[in-house]
Design a protein around this nucleic acid. Structure first.
Lengths: 224, 224
DNA sequence: TAGATTGTTAATCGATTAACAATC
DNA sequence: TAGATTGTTAATCGATTAACAATC
């Protein structure tokens, strides 16, 4: 009973903004480690990353890592703590659907593997692409996707197909037993059966950027 | 004085989550328009997009579009309102630095143009790439970047270079007068002179996805 | 010891959600 | 008219920030 309650607390208790900052700390601390810095205070981290100390302290607290007053935190302990907390230590296998330019870019993105994502292979509707190799991963015909998901018990699907076929591809993945989908197609995907969907909406990011730019330019015109 | 206060209100007043949802409404309403649906209630929008009515109403309110009780909102008015509000009507010109696979993917991403982003050309450090054409855009040597930013008064820079050269590239852009940078390199960029930086952190998104997956799997083990 | 830094409890702030009057 | 739907004001909720005691 204890552990169940604890799990529920964990599910509800992690603010998504914290989750998004953890990889930033991780990357920064890895650099620090290479420079032979072994202890650091949240004040120093905050200064370097343009955050505030208390936020850094709260974020580190979420991972369960504790520091020592006056001394600070062990750099290695935070790095390990983040990796453990985010589940990077045991990597998850993934299939990628859609070997177009975006798919190729993701296959070529160095570092996903150390973040616990292991993209095994790619799938494409274009028969001409089947059998080719992109960034070291084999490309299969899309028809083989459901069978391979079942046989290899792959849990993560990455969607980089065009918008029109995104939902259909997701349906195939979910039918075959995928647990989580990382969707780069510019349409929202409807999940079923408790599948986790992470929509990577570039249009949304662009909207934020261009609105900020417009507001800034408008402000400059008022007070030049 | 009135207008200045208004601007300040606008700057502070737009929740970023709202900004990110607007393109989702836009895309959905465009589809609706093609199906000859001309009026819609926030309840119907919410049902289709798996949101709640009041949130949709609040978001639409931000754009300044008003509806009519019992009738709902004019689909065309919301579409136009969002485009106007986000500044998509007058597009901004951009340069892209780093013509690798991610850069090529972004150059090939259809639809940025209708979101008000017009990528004019790409730049790359690799001399072999200079002079080539990717998705209809010419690739120039990186040395030409600052001069062309100045001459063409380009305001947006897109960074898809490797992590190690990201800050250097950003510095060149900012020196030359860029106002906003959309950064896809997996390192945070330090801005200066009020330049707007939008970091597109794929590792952060992956962290959210994989943590949710891990928590879900843990929960399944507890209550199978 | 003195002072810096953590851990923890409380206050603030902003986004989300609820409630309800206005209105077509 | 009656009822659905908007617009607006108030309540809630969660993340951020502040305050301060504990401690190395």
């Amino acid at each position: 009973m204890e552990s169940k309650d604890e799990k529920i607390k964990i599910v509800r208790g992690i603010p998504e903004p914290t989750l998004r900052r953890l990889p930033v700390y991780h990357q920064y601390l890895r650099e620090l480690e290479q420079k032979k810095v072994f202890f650091i205070s949240c004040t120093a981290i905050a200064a370097d990353l343009k955050l505030i100390p208390i936020q850094v302290r709260k974020d580190i607290e979420m991972t369960g890592v504790v520091g020592r007053p006056k001394i600070g935190y062990s750099v290695k302990q935070i790095i390990d703590g983040i990796e453990e907390f985010l589940g990077w230590k045991k990597s998850s296998e993934a299939f990628l659907a859609g070997a177009g330019s975006l798919g190729a870019a993701i296959l070529g993105y160095q570092g996903f593997k150390e973040y616990g994502l292991d993209i095994l292979a790619a799938f494409d509707n274009n028969p001409a692409k089947a059998g080719t190799i992109i960034h070291g991963r084999k490309v299969y015909a899309m028809e083989k996707l459901p069978d391979l998901i079942r046989r290899m018990k792959v849990k993560i699907g990455i969607i980089t197909v065009p918008a029109v076929s995104a939902q259909k591809t997701a349906d195939i993945m979910m039918d075959a037993g995928i647990s989580a989908i990382w969707n780069f197609a510019p349409v929202k995907i409807s999940p079923f059966g408790g599948v986790i969907i992470q929509n990577e909406n570039l249009a949304a990011s662009l909207a934020v950027l261009s609105k900020k730019l417009k507001v800034m330019q408008a402000a400059e015109n008022i007070r030049p």
